[in-house]
Design a binder for these strands. Sequence first.
DNA 1: TTTGTCTGCCC
DNA 2: ATTCTGC
DNA 3: GCAGAATGGGCAGACAAA
Length: 708
Amino acid sequence: MDTDEVPKQSPPAEGPKKRKASPVRAPKTKAAKANLNDDVSNRNVKKVEEHDDDRGDESGHESEIDEAEVANVVLKAGGYDFGTWKKGEKVPYSALCRAFDLIEATTKRLEITNILSRFFKVVIETTPDCLLECLYLCINRLGAEYRNKELGIGESILTKAVASATGRSPEKIKADMEKMGDLGQVAQASRSNQPVMFKPKPLDVSKVFKFLKEISETSGKESQARKIDKIKQLLVACQENEPRYLIRSLEGKLRIGLAEQTVLVALASSVVMTDPELGKLKGEKLKDKIAEGAGVLKSVYSELPDYDMIVPAMLKYGIMNLADHCHLVPGIPLKPMLAHPTKSISEVLDRFEGIHFTCEWKYDGERAQIHLLENGETMVYSRNSEDLSKKYPDILERAAKIANEGVKSFVLDCEAVAWDKEEKKILPFQVLSTRKRKDVAVEDLKVQVCIFAFDLLYLNGKPLIKETFAERRRILHESFHAIEGEFAFAVHTNAQGAEDIQKELDESVAGGCEGLMVKTLDKDSSYEPSKRSRNWLKVKKDYLKGVGDTLDLVVIGAYLGRGKRVGVYGGYLLACYDPDKEEYQTICKIGTGFSEEDLKTQYDALKEHVVSEPKPYFLYSEDPRVKPDVWFEPSMVWEVQCADLSVSPVHKAAIGEVDDSKGISLRFPRFIRVRDDKNADDATSAEQVAEMYRSQKIHHQKGSSKDD
DNA sequence: TTTGTCTGCCC
DNA sequence: ATTCTGC
DNA sequence: GCAGAATGGGCAGACAAA
């Protein structure tokens, strides 16, 4: 800590070289933090050279600043050294990447927040025009989610791009990827071994962001090649640690312990610190204002999750006045309330002890936030604020007629569930997911949906999110009416005792639902995800110990871990056993439920059983998404829990039992424990798997196609 | 035209 | 989606 | 308990390859 040396910020290609099997963001050290006691003005102050290029410095105010002022940047940045740039000049990408390095070096959230807020502060003080782009690069997005902007870049294209940009073969890149577990690091290492002819012009955040946007807008014939070309251009211009973060941005994961919530707090903090009035405060008072600002921003963001609108307003009017300018508006999706999983009914009772609550059926469909505007416009948004209006023309059409007279505008929280019109009953999620997603005419819809409404967030110009749930529900029922097969209110009761809740849970499952949602009616029952995003509880049958579907499955393959799982297997391929055919049939992959210790132990135990080829008595798909990195001799049996069984396009369990050509797979599989007491051939049999599938209350199979 | 691969987004 | 982990 | 980062099945859509 007290060293005089300025620590190197970005050791190239560090990691696997130093420590084998070290997770991406480990080892964490404190070395990267510069010390305020150092003589700041004497170090790390690089005079920024003049550029007469095309970077659009047309702002007029000439940025002539002296060296001492530049040096102060480090001081103003709270001792963190992000490098320097002139006022009004685009923020260098290297500065952002330095911040990422500093963040990656710690696991402490407060420190992460502090680093980033210091970075944002410098940006606001030098080049506020870049703040939005920095922000988006930190949360890995190109714009608000409801604008549906995607990169259309995945691992495959990225691997090709890295290979091409570094002059190495895709095979080499893949091999390195397996070793390092992070394509960003692979890119960085590859670049640093590459002879550099001349130093490229440094990247700035605007340029990087603009490139990402262009990539997302690239479509049509040969678009993949054009995207690769763009990535190459950027990658070649990267220096030092920049390839690592550029590639991770393209992957959509920074993996440095920084994501939406922390960025939001850091942003609020930086805005308070740079506020002409609030910024003068010191100590506790400043701290309080920062906390208050973070509260304001969180609240505003949950109502209007669009930084394109929030950031300019915040800089213009000040963070404390933000809510006056940005608030819930029909037409823009707000963040949905989420639910905590609970392991037992007694856990529900413990949490809600002495509090009035209600139980609602949890429908197995797709979250749908339905908006009706005063001008008659309607839209539907998903749980993640994606615009689903193109997918649900039938819901748009229905929006006006489900409302009672006098209703001019609303925001409804619902579940859209596949609906069988003939049988008048709910269909499973898998049916819903076959719906077309765009350019569908109402007449051509193959899958009908019924909307199950459970909350009302806005009505006739008034936000209701601060009302109690009891009140919101009252207004919901008062303002809308059910239409058979089209619109209904979620079934609910006010059961308060364990037995009643159990009964309700059973009924919900019998009714084709996943379980129950439990919500407080009065105390803390406002709809404010900013306060607590998971303020509701969910009880699903498969959460309850000893109730859900459990299988004992054989481990026959594994996938090398990525990120923090580098050096161990990150996931496994499981199979059931068919004693008649004497073969192991794949049923699912599994990658959750393991503690870090489990992962290590299992890696060590299983690597003994690696075989170079799959056994001839394995039945599996050649689909590359399922093919494991290593195969095992059948040895270990694991207890696995799931929510449902489904007919699978790739897995082979019980093939021929319920479908001639398709096997069965598991929905939401997770590891429970090792079954030391079982041999591989004692695993759950194909016959048992088929029986479990058949005994499900609700299931769907497309009409047997061979007879049509 | 058909089939396969990749991606993003539902859960 | 589920689950685990550091703070 | 939050926030973040591992990981699951399976679908449509967009392209690429055959």
